[in-house]
Amino acid sequence: MTLIEIENLTVTFRSKGREVRAVEGVSLSVGARESYGLVGESGSGKSTILRAICGMAPVTGGTIRIGGQPLPTPRGRAFSTEVQMVFQDPYASLHPRHTIDRTLSEPLAIHGMPDRDARVVQALTDVGLPPAFRFRYPHQLSGGQRQRVAIARALMLRPKILLLDEPTSALDASVQAEVLNLLNRLRAEQGLTFLMVSHDLAVIDHMCDRIMVLQHGRTVEEIHREDLAGARMTTAYARSLFDASADRMLGGTTETAP
């Protein structure tokens, strides 16, 4: 079943009388429980697509449907129980003066959900943090712990879809591994659908079944995971991204790593 359907999406920013097409005619569809990746360099429009889904970018053409339904503008409450986003920078995406408890219980309060206490404790446990962390402030946590809190916050309303905007690019390699493992575990446990953005082809490849390569706001190529691993891309640009990927930098000898 198709859960996310984007058809011919165009996003145009206007500034100083100039028009900038950040996304132009992008179409994609993501099935329920699928994990779909968007890769590209800065300015390729990959994050803008996620923001457009959330109603945070000026959509000037095309349609976005979630579960067959076109999205209302403004998005409204029902939307936040379906779709949530995890941002790149856990330092910037958590309120510095709110305790973790307040950050996590706010969505529950807005939606009038009961058992806030139990749900906050459960959410922290789900992302592998001790329940006592609810009384801390973001600055008392490490980057990886903060990103875990951001993931917990996104899951408070039990959404079906997580939009992941470079969720690990601000983290150290070893912490990145922990967060990626956590995301995969939560996807399996809660039956989530991922739409994930990254500039790191190896991360996208690890997490996603299908991958779209974007450049200058347009689709370059849509590729299956197996074809990526087998270097069976059809466009020169996708190949150049593949060749420049840090993963290739040991000359393909990583397979023999102990």
């Binding site: 990145q176 190896a202 490849d205 690890h206 990526l228 993963d247 990583t254 397979e255």
Partner: peptide, 8 residues
């Protein structure tokens, strides 16, 4: 080892 690899 903790880095993901393409095709890993």
């Amino acid at each position: 080892n903790c880095l993901p690899r393409i095709g890993g």
